[in-house]
């Protein structure tokens, strides 16, 4: 391995920061989903990096689980977004006003 662990962790932290930024700023449901995906990927990267440097297979396993779960999550989330789009003709969370708050 020519690379050090810290490099990967720093990239992962940067992605985490971008994801948090996206979640806090964006109000488009799909974009927020993007942000969530970015965070999950950051975590996966972390996981595999740690797993590589330990070395231990658990990191890759958890990454696999996490990817699979992300797939399930996205399926559900996009269905929700489609339902919302059918109802409001819009996917901007800030424009959903049926609940105050």
């Amino acid at each position: 391995m020519s690379n050090e662990l810290i490099d990967f962790v720093l990239v992962s932290v940067a992605l985490l920061g971008i994801g948090i930024y996206g979640l806090s700023v964006k109000r488009n449901a799909i974009r927020m989903l993007f942000a969530v995906e970015i965070i999950i990927n950051a975590a996966n990267l972390n996981m595999v990096a740690f797993g590589r440097f330990l070395p231990h297979s658990g990191g890759q396993t958890l990454a696999l689980f996490s990817i699979a779960i992300a797939a399930a999550e996205v399926a559900v989330g996009l269905s929700l977004i489609i339902v919302a789009y059918r109802m409001y003709q819009n996917i901007d969370i800030a424009d959903f006003r049926s609940l105050k708050g």
């Binding site: 990096a49 797993g51 996009l78």
Partner: peptide, 26 residues
């Protein structure tokens, strides 16, 4: 990165599932 980290299985899984299906769905 996964490939760099010598985990080709996860890398391919990532591409096949994330890029191949989740991104398509999105």
């Amino acid at each position: 990165f996964f490939l760099l980290l010598d985990s080709p299985f996860v890398a391919m899984f990532q591409i096949a599932v994330y890029v191949g299906s989740i991104a398509v769905l999105i």
